[in-house]
Design a protein around this nucleic acid. Structure first.
Lengths: 336, 336
DNA sequence: TTGTAGGCGTTATCAG
DNA sequence: CTGATAACGCCTACAA
C-alpha cells in the first residue's frame, strides 16, 4: 500500500495540496464543494496526517514526558506508578496528547535522559515526580523555559507549577490518629532522606508530636529505600532500640508492609503491640494480613491535575495558582 | 536562551551546515581539524539534534508504541503492566528508543488509537498484548506491513512475530500439580472468553485432565473480567454447584485472589477445603493470606524479547523463529 | 476563495 | 574532502 500524502489527495480531488491542508484544518474559507471533494477522497483513502511532519512544522509533538526514578524492578512492584501512568494517559488522551514514559535508573542516566528529552524536543513538556530539595532538573528546566509540572513540593513555592498532596497535613493527621489511640512511642520511616516528600511528612509528624506536647526523639526516625526490604531494614533498626516503638508511620505502603513483616518476625502482635500506617492506599493494603491502615493519596486526581496544567502551559495558558493541593484522607484498617 | 540549530553551529565553527551534520553522524570523511572545531562548538553549546526534524527526515521516530487494553483503574491495580512497561523501557532505552504508552478503554477507542498510531506514523512499531482469536488489529497491521510484535499467541503461528509463555504447558503443569495433591474437582477461572490466553490455558487444563483419565466438566469452567470482583463472581457461581470444586486454577493472580476471598467468605479453609493457583507471580501473591501459589510468568524476559524483536523488525532485520517461547515455572506457596 | 511558494531542521546527493 | 542544494510532509503567508 502506497503511502498517502496530501499531494496525493490533492491530485485525486483536483485541488491544490494547500487546499487539502485547509480542509483538514477546518479553514472556514474553503468552498463547500471543494471541501466535500477533498473529504470524500480523504475518507476513501483513510488519510491521516503524518505526525512527524506536523511535529516539525508546528514545533510540537503532542507528546508529554514522564520520567520515573526507579529501577524497573522497583517500578514493577509499586502500584503508585501504574496508577499515575494510567491517569495521565487518560487525561492526556482527551486532548490529543500521548505519553512517553522513560525510566532513569542511575543518577547520571537521569541527567542524560532529561537532557535528551529537553534538547531534542521530543516531548512538549514534562511531568516530574519525586523532587529533591535542591533539584538540578528543575533549575535546568526553568532556565530553559521548558514546560513542566512537578508532582510534589518545591521551594520557593511560587517559582514553578506544582500539584501535590498536603503531605505535611496528612502526616500530621495520621500521627495524631495514632496519638489519639494512646500510642506514645511513634516511629517514622521515610524514603531516601533527600526527597521533599520524606522531609514534608517528617515535618507533619513532628508538628503532631509538638502539638501534643511530646518530645521528638531522633532515634525513632529511620530512612529506607523504596522497597519491602528497605522497610524491613529500617524496622530492624527501630526494634533494636532500648525502648521499642509502639507505632510506625511509614512513607509508603510498601515500606510499611516491609516494616510490618519484620515486626511479625519479631513476634510482635499488630496492632496490639505495635500499629502501622502507610501511605498511598494501594491495593496491597487490603491484601496484607493484617490489612494496612493507609493515607489515601488521590493519585488519579494528582495525575489529572498535573496533566491538565502541563497541557495548559504548553498551549500558552497560565494556570493559577502555581501550587495546587489535592486533599488526602486516612483509610483505617486493621493495622492501626 | 536561543534555540540552537546546525546552522548556528556551522556559523560559529566556520564551516557549512552540511559539515556539521556529517560530524554529528560520524562521517569518516571529514577532516580531523574541522571535526574538532565543530565538536568543540557542539560541546560548548550543548547542542543536540532536534528529534522532530530527524523523525521527518529519517521517516522514523525511534518511538515504540504499547497499547494497553484495560481501563485506567484496572491498570492501576494490575502489577503485570508496571512490570511490562518497566522492562520495555529498559530494553528500548539501551538502543535509543523510547516508549509511548496508550490506553484504549472502549472497543471503538481501540480501533481509533491503533488507526492513529499506525497512520500518523507517530511510532515506528507496536507491541500488542492480549490478542483475541480473530484480531482485527493484527489483520490491519499485517496488511499495512507495519512492524509489530505480539506478546501472546496467534494462528497461524508463523504468520506474525510473537513472544509468549508456554501457556498450554504451564496450565497443564499447574493442573497436574493439583492432581498430584489429590484434588479431583478442579475448576478453571478464565478471563474474557475471547482471549487467546484464556483459551490456551483452558486447553492445558483439559490436557492435564485427559492425561489423568478424568472427565472434563464444563460446569467447572467460569470466566470473569480482569478484577478481584470478576474472580469473586466466578467463584460464587462455582460454589453454587451441587458438587463444589476442591481446587481452582485462575487466569491471573487478581482473579485468583478475588476467588479466594469469596471462598473465605463461604467459610472454606484454604488449602484444606479448596486450593488456589494463580498466574503471574505478582508481588500480591506473598502479601495475601494465605499466600498464593502462582505460575511465574517471566514478564521481564517477555518484554525484553518482544522489544528486541520489534526493534530488529523496525531496523530491517528478520528475527527467527517467528514464534519465541519464554518458559515459566510454578512458585508454590500456602494456597496449594 | 484558491494556488504558489517558503520554511520547520535534518540528512543525503551532487558537484567542485 | 567540503559546500550548495534538494527533499521529508505539512502549514501558512502572500499573491492572484
Amino acid at each position: 500500500m502506497a503511502e498517502i500524502r496530501q499531494t496525493e489527495i490533492a491530485r485525486l480531488a483536483r485541488v491544490s495540496q494547500a487546499t487539502v491542508s485547509r480542509v483538514l484544518n477546518n479553514d472556514p474559507q474553503v468552498n463547500e464543494e471543494l471541501r466535500q471533494r477533498v473529504l470524500a477522497v480523504v475518507e476513501a483513502l483513510g488519510y491521516v496526517p503524518d505526525a512527524r511532519a506536523q511535529s516539525l512544522r508546528a514545533q510540537r509533538t503532542r507528546l508529554l514526558g514522564l520520567v520515573v526514578h526507579r529501577a524497573p524492578t522497583a517500578l514493577a512492584h509499586d502500584p503508585f506508578f501504574s496508577a499515575l501512568i494510567a491517569s495521565i494517559i487518560e487525561q492526556a488522551g482527551k486532548q490529543g496528547y500521548h505519553l512517553c514514559v522513560d525510566a532513569a535508573r542511575t543518577v547520571k542516566g537521569q541527567r542524560a535522559i532529561y537532557e535528551e528529552l529537553l534538547r531534542t524536543r521530543r516531548v512538549d513538556g514534562l511531568i516530574l515526580v519525586e523532587s529533591e530539595t535542591r533539584d538540578e532538573r528543575i533549575a535546568r528546566l526553568t532556565a530553559e523555559g521548558f514546560p513542566f509540572v512537578l508532582i510534589g513540593r518545591y521551594e520557593p513555592e511560587d517559582a514553578i507549577y506544582t500539584v501535590d498532596n498536603d503531605n505535611i497535613g496528612a502526616a500530621r493527621m495520621a500521627t495524631e490518629y495514632l496519638l489519639q489511640q494512646g500510642r506514645r512511642r511513634i516511629a517514622y520511616i521515610g524514603g531516601p532522606a533527600g526527597l521533599t516528600v520524606t522531609r514534608d511528612r517528617l515535618r507533619g509528624y513532628r508538628d503532631a508530636l509538638q502539638a501534643w506536647g511530646m518530645n521528638y526523639d531522633a532515634r525513632l526516625v529511620a530512612f529506607g529505600a523504596f522497597s519491602e526490604q528497605g522497610g524491613a531494614r529500617a524496622m530492624c533498626e527501630l526494634l533494636s532500640l532500648p525502648h521499642a516503638p509502639d507505632a510506625v508511620l511509614a512513607l509508603d505502603d510498601v515500606l510499611a508492609i516491609g516494616a510490618m513483616r519484620e515486626a511479625q518476625r519479631h513476634q510482635l502482635r499488630i496492632p496490639e503491640d505495635i500499629a502501622f500506617i502507610g501511605f498511598n492506599d494501594t491495593p496491597l493494603c487490603s491484601f496484607v494480613e493484617p490489612s494496612l491502615t493507609s493515607v489515601a493519596i488521590d493519585i488519579a486526581a494528582l495525575a489529572r491535575a498535573a496533566t491538565q496544567r502541563l497541557i495548559d502551559l504548553i498551549e500558552g495558558r497560565s494556570p493559577s495558582p502555581r501550587r495546587l493541593i489535592v486533599p488526602s484522607r486516612l483509610v483505617p484498617r486493621e493495622s492501626a
